[in-house]
Amino acid sequence: MQAILHGFLLALGLILPLGAQNVFVFNQGANHKKLRTAIPVVITAGLSDTFLILLAVLGVSLILMTMPTLQLIIYIIGFIFLLYMAWSLWREQPTQLKEQGSMSAKKQIGFALSVSLLNPHAIMDTIGVIGTSATIYEGGDKILFTISTIVVSWLWFIFLAVCGRMLGSIDKTGKYILILNKFSSIIVLIVSAIILKNIIDLIF
Rank of each mutant, 00 (worst) to 15 (best):
G168M: 04
C163R: 01
S133N: 14
V162F: 13
F111V: 12
I109A: 09
M103D: 07
V151P: 00
M124K: 11
Q108T: 05
R165F: 07
I150G: 03
S184A: 15
I158P: 00
Q96H: 12
V162Y: 10
E138W: 13
D171P: 01
G131D: 10
P120T: 05
Y176L: 04
S104N: 03
S148L: 05
S153L: 07
I130S: 08
I136K: 15
F183S: 11
N119S: 09
V129A: 09
T146A: 14
Q96C: 04
D141R: 14
V129N: 05
I177K: 13
I187H: 04
F157K: 02
L160T: 09
C163W: 00
Q93N: 14
M103I: 04
T135C: 06
F111R: 08
L155W: 00
W154L: 14
M166Y: 02
F157P: 00
T95E: 10
A105Q: 02
T146Y: 13
I170D: 01
G101K: 13
D125T: 05
S148G: 03
M124L: 15
F183H: 06
C163E: 10
F111H: 11
I179L: 13
S184F: 02
K106V: 14
I158N: 01
I177G: 06
Q93P: 04
K98F: 10
A112E: 02
G128T: 11
S169F: 03
K172D: 09
S184E: 04
K172N: 08
S153H: 09
D141Q: 15
K106S: 07
W156C: 02
K182R: 15
V115L: 04
F157T: 00
A134Q: 08
P120Q: 10
